[in-house]
Design a protein around this nucleic acid. Structure first.
Length: 139
DNA sequence: CAGATGACTCCCA
DNA sequence: CTGGGAGCCATCT
């Protein structure tokens, strides 16, 4: 599949997640912003929940919530934490990951272009307390 | 075809 | 810090 433009939303989400390299983590919101269109952080969560065992090599463990915490409850969360620690990602005393150190910078421009992605602009959300650091680093 | 169902995020009290 | 509400939508019974 050379181009993901017409792929189902979940496929596009998985494709973006597959770009996150080992030792780095992304957030539901960041993935959503890259997928663009009507994709929201929640959709990303839904898509991951739909993965189950039907995996496919998608590095699901590298997606965490905007607080730098693991969102997957119970056993799954413990597995996720172990997988991340195995990649060298550290957790603080509260069980959170420092996104400034381990956060992913986003896919390279070439990849976006080749797959016809049109990432959402830097700031989603109109008005309100603006830019809480960390959104996409390109644009 | 009509529900039911999810691993989110932000805002405000 | 905690809790609740709104926005959000593809998939699968």
């Amino acid at each position: 599949m050379p181009n993901l433009k017409d792929a189902p939303l979940y496929e596009r989400i998985y494709a973006v997640i597959c770009q996150v390299p080992p030792g780095k983590v992304s957030t539901y919101g960041q993935i959503a912003a890259i997928v663009g269109r009507s994709c929201t952080a929640r959709e990303v969560g839904y898509a991951l929940a739909a993965l189950k065992a039907g995996d496919r090599g998608v590095p699901w463990q590298r997606v965490i919530n905007s607080q730098g915490e693991i969102s997957l409850p119970d056993e799954g969360g413990e597995i996720q934490r172990r997988l991340l620690e195995a990649e060298g990602i550290g957790f603080d005393a509260r069980g959170r990951i420092d996104l400034d150190r381990f956060g992913w910078d986003g896919p390279d421009w070439e990849w976006l272009d080749q797959n016809d992605f049109n990432p959402a602009p830097l700031l989603r959300r109109t008005g309100k307390k603006g830019a809480r650091g960390r959104q996409l680093s390109f644009l």
